[in-house]
Design a protein around this nucleic acid. Structure first.
Lengths: 136, 136
DNA sequence: CTTGACTCTGTAGTTAACTACGGGGTTTAG
DNA sequence: CTAAACCCCGTAGTTAACTACAGAGTCAAG
């Protein structure tokens, strides 16, 4: 373990090979070392990084946002207050998403309940419940 | 209240006017009644519907998925078990998203903590925590 | 030592989700 | 009653995020 060609990485992470090169160009994956003949050799934790990217996309983050998220770390040389600020902003954004998902969930649970109960409720718009709660 | 031209709807819901026509074509908004000259007249709850769509997009749902979500309702003529099944599947998907967001949140909180504490923790990949937990 | 599977780069094509535009009719404020 | 501001439809252009392809080099099994 510890060295993956691009094809093997693609297999393990279940993404298209070309997507990996694309992400590298966009700065989502650090450029890996190469063999003397130019082949990429990825560390095996690149698999997790790719999975993180895919999952974050499913949560509604753009690749640009994900790049920023992945860049959030404390290295000597980064200003702590800056990292902290950006992290806190992201936390707030995540809390907002969680709240919205809970509202959506609640509406669906209500729908399922009305279904088994055959209650007179919920003929009309169920999901309209999720209006943007004055989101900045 | 009660009747919105497409331009007013666009203003109230903060979306581009052309986007509204686009959503109507895709079946995300029901085709509204028209004036005798052909102008659309939307009921005012179209605003909430548009906000729902936008919010759901930010949560990572595609327009196709959102159309399905909005179609989930109990009308006489829809098979209850079917609606129920689809709703339950959506609930499971939402729970998965919520779990992932919590994992992401936790990692960010840890980052902020390490920041103020100047702990030796978390130089390296913080967000790698969010790997796809064997997602079906 | 060749053949098939990989890899490289650069460029072009695709899909989803808009967004804009042109050429026309309609409404309304002055 | 006319000019600005709307609206109509159809079509074309844009952006993000892939995905494919062409032409050439590399590696590994037999």
């Amino acid at each position: 373990m510890g060295q993956l060609t691009i094809g093997n990485l693609a297999k393990h992470a279940q993404v298209n090979l070309e997507t990996i090169r694309y992400y590298e160009r966009l700065g989502l994956l650090p450029s890996p070392p190469r063999t003397q003949s130019g082949y990429r050799l990825f560390p095996d934790d690149a698999v997790r990084r790719l999975q993180f990217i895919r999952r974050a996309q499913e949560l509604g983050f753009s690749l640009k946002e994900i790049r920023d998220l992945l860049g959030l770390r404390l290295r000597p040389g980064t200003r702590c207050a800056d990292v902290r600020g950006r992290a806190e902003a992201k936390i707030a954004e995540i809390d907002e998403k969680i709240r919205s998902l809970h509202a959506m969930r609640k509406a669906l649970v209500r729908l399922v309940g009305a279904c088994s109960g055959r209650g007179p409720v919920s003929d009309c718009p169920i999901l309209e419940s999720l209006a943007r709660e004055e989101h900045q």
